[in-house]
């Protein structure tokens, strides 16, 4: 390996292993230009939300979706077929 001042300068210019190089990612993050999942905007996107159990252990007797489906702007309510009675 070269050890002259010129060699060292050449190696340093590469910003290789051992260099505390500034992060390539930062310019976009500090300007609010990151692209996280919630930033993804596709035309016609619908939004999913989950009905969750208030109980830690319980049998599901019935699920009634009628009122929810009647709400303007609701496209679907999913549950497993065997319990989606009514």
């Amino acid at each position: 390996m070269g050890t002259t001042a010129e060699d060292i300068a050449r190696a340093e210019k590469l910003e290789g292993i051992g260099c505390s190089r500034k992060r390539k990612e930062d310019p976009r993050f500090v300007q609010g230009k990151g692209n996280y999942v919630d930033d993804v905007k596709l035309p016609g996107t619908l939004f999913a939300d989950m009905v969750r159990s208030p109980y830690a252990h319980a049998r599901i007797i019935s699920i009634n979706k009628k009122k929810a489906l009647a709400l303007k702007g609701v496209h679907a309510v999913y549950s497993l077929p065997m319990i989606s009675n009514l």
């Binding site: 999913a48 009905v51 599901i60 497993l80």
Partner: peptide, 21 residues
Amino acid sequence: LADEKVHFQYQEVAAVIADNR
């Protein structure tokens, strides 16, 4: 989605799909 039983609090039971959140 929960099948007959739920096994923990906040387990997913049903999903709603709508125009916005």
